[in-house]
């Protein structure tokens, strides 16, 4: 599971409309908005690692979004990531030469 904390910038008069647009995106929750500065704070949850960037691109291309900046990247619960990396490949004879290196 991946979570990203994202800061979104818009114009003060568009804050509410942008918040609505953001909340309608899958996995996105709006946590804070500041009408004075035009800034919003959202958290995006992506079920698969692949959805993360696609979601970020969708946020960036929402109408009236001037900027979306990635701030926080949480992947503590991403067990897939850990199991992908054996401690010591030499313990796993036979698979230890990456396929790419076999001519």
């Amino acid at each position: 599971m991946n979570f990203s904390g994202i800061a979104v910038t818009t114009k003060p008069e568009w804050v509410d409309a942008v918040a609505q647009g953001l909340a309608a995106l899958p996995g996105v929750e709006v946590f804070g908005r500041d009408a004075a500065s035009g800034k919003l704070v959202i958290v995006q949850e992506a079920a698969s690692v692949a959805d993360e960037v696609a979601g970020f691109k969708a946020i960036r291309s929402l109408p009236n979004v001037i900027a979306a900046d990635l701030v926080y990247h949480y992947f503590a619960d991403d067990t897939e990531l850990v199991s992908a990396m054996p401690d010591d490949l030499s313990a796993l004879e036979g698979i230890s030469v990456p396929a790419e290196l076999k001519d």
Partner: peptide, 15 residues
């Protein structure tokens, strides 16, 4: 977890 991440993100951008 999400509210924790939101808090850290908000602190970064000064909300």
């Amino acid at each position: 977890i999400k509210s924790g991440i939101a808090a850290s993100t908000a602190a970064t951008v000064g909300l």
